[in-house]
Design a binder for these strands. Structure first.
Lengths: 338, 338
DNA sequence: ATGAAAGCGCTAACAG
DNA sequence: CTGTTAGCGCTTTCAT
């Protein structure tokens, strides 16, 4: 940068102003600075900026690349951060490193706040007391104090799925849960509650799963081993990947979807939208979650908020081709009167 | 850090030594430094280290999260970098930002070299002349001068697929290509060459695609519109995602795989391994590619290599359940003699 | 084995 | 509008 200043014949400070788009430099100087920078191939040094600036205006992001929803969030985070005047530092959680270490790296790089996506750990010591690093968790596996949370109203999402299936005439509606994965407990509870609400408590069936395709396929095989009359007429999977496995295994076995079994997923991922999968699914807006997470961080950093926020997003059911009326519809509630 | 030094009653320089595991501090001092750091909650400041160190020992990584292979590479890059004494800085390529800008950010953070995964751009100006930033491209879309490339022997991979299918008795083997995506041209050529080698030039059929599920599904629908006798008995898709789309659409239409059509994918991604997909696929080792890319960077940075390297990995065919003999096997080459 | 001092490339606060 | 000055937190070099 001093090279640029020398070339133009001005002070370093002025060049700095120009590069930060701050007022206080004449149009002509700006032009000449940019030109000199171009000629010299100058590029601002982030490390030095980071060191000297009072604020880094950097947000750390801790993410995994294994879940489709997460990918969407990361992508949406870039524009959201820019909008609030922040920059992103990514760090992947991979099995060989641990969330702890990833977090350390982000903090070492002066992240003013950290946004985690579907993380497991709790970060008490980071958030304790004043001046500690704010954490915003998107769809965390567990709830924690001292952090902001952005999550979906899982129960509401599942309820919509159940309502939709019941309206189609289904009664034997099963659920494959997500074990200890983010949101799974809520989804399971939502399923149970919604079933009871429709007077279908006797039809409640929860199959253990873990959000993977294989867990869906496993349940499919278990169901296929039963007598056809014992099959549920609809299944709500814990997420789209699980629904995908269920669907794939059922189709392979010669069943028709939705004729024999209706299937609902969760996430409305790209998978659900594929023409040959065409899955009815509960949609969580990745872009919205990203925007709200950045805003939550910005509130703490720029507006001095200190109270925890629990931000709950409303999901919506996207109806596609994997759900339809059951082949032998259960009589509607008034059926006995006929 | 000066706080730690003060607390222990030594100089800052000594604390620095301790944290870098450099020799020159007594065991007792080390212990006390670590303890004081712990008590004060001290964490080294990466920005300052970056600024002051002669070498950053950081490798930039430019990646996308949309292709399964890429995800595997990123994960494998962490241990590979550590092994060579480097640290990673990630930057996602997302539609809203452009590869250029991502690259700028990585360089601003003092990346000594940049590893790109499946990128489109060419980076001449970065690599021109001495002292410029080395670039290592993994599976680049286009070849460029001045950069190291790590790629798979695509033609060899496709050839193995064709050989496998021919050995099973297939003759009408079609290919769905990947348009302008990384490796697609080579795969297409490999298909043509292998078909000719088996005297099946007349059976060459290339369907345009783009590595997405939908392109596979589209081809499936086009094929289904034909008379059954006109169907190829086997299809080699450009990658696993495309194969997945093809498979899904064919199954939905009531065809059996591999009885009616055999399918081969490319990448051996997680998708291919799913029990209900069970796709024969050409495997590229993500871990190996990651390791070789880091090594290529290290060679330039630590050993002063200046000549370009073109590193070609041998793929292997993983045979699974999506390929089998054709229903009405073509007569083997000697068939006319019967 | 330890300390003193210089400075990485930049920004902030102030002065002109 | 422009220049001067003083560090940010660390590593490096040289001295002790």
């Amino acid at each position: 940068m001093s090279d640029v200043a020398a070339r133009v014949g001005v002070s370093q400070a002025l060049v700095s102003l120009v590069f930060r788009n701050q007022p206080g430099a004449s149009a002509d100087t700006r032009r000449r600075v940019f030109q000199a920078a171009e000629e010299l191939g100058y590029r601002p040094d982030t490390a030095a900026q980071l060191l000297r600036r009072t604020r880094s205006r950097q947000l750390g992001v801790l993410f995994t690349m294994r879940h489709p929803f997460d990918v969407g969030v990361v992508e949406a985070l870039y524009p959201a951060a820019r909008k609030h005047g922040y920059t992103l530092v990514l760090n992947a959680m991979v099995a060989t490193r641990g969330e702890r270490q990833s977090m350390e790296e982000l903090l070492g790089l002066r992240s003013e706040a950290v946004i985690t996506i579907g993380a497991t750990s709790s970060w008490e010591h980071l958030t304790t007391g004043v001046g500690r690093t704010p954490i915003v968790e998107i769809n965390p596996r567990t709830r924690a104090a001292g952090v902001d949370v952005v999550r979906t109203a899982e129960r509401k999402g599942i309820r919509q799925a159940v309502d939709h299936l019941v309206a189609l005439g289904h009664r034997a509606i099963a659920h494959i849960d997500g074990g200890r994965m983010p949101g799974a407990t809520e989804r399971r509870r939502g399923y149970r509650a919604a079933m009871r609400r429709h007077g279908l408590a006797d039809h409640i069936r929860v199959h253990p799963g873990d959000y993977t395709e294989e867990s869906g396929a496993r349940v499919a095989r278990a169901l296929l081993a039963r007598a056809p009359a014992q099959l549920p007429t609809a299944v709500i999977a814990g997420n789209d990947r699980c629904a995908h496995g269920l669907l794939g295994a059922l189709l392979r076995a010669g069943l028709r979807v939705p004729d024999d079994v209706s299937i609902v997923g969760y996430d409305d991922s790209q998978l659900a939208r594929l023409s040959f999968i065409d899955l009815t699914s509960v949609r969580q807006e990745a872009a919205e979650a990203a925007e709200l997470a950045v805003r939550a961080a910005a509130e703490r950093l720029d507006e001095g908020r200190t109270a925890d926020r629990d931000i709950v997003l409303d999901p919506t059911l996207v109806v596609r081709g994997s759900t339809g009326p059951p082949r032998t519809p259960s009589p509607p509630d008034g059926g006995l009167l006929r």
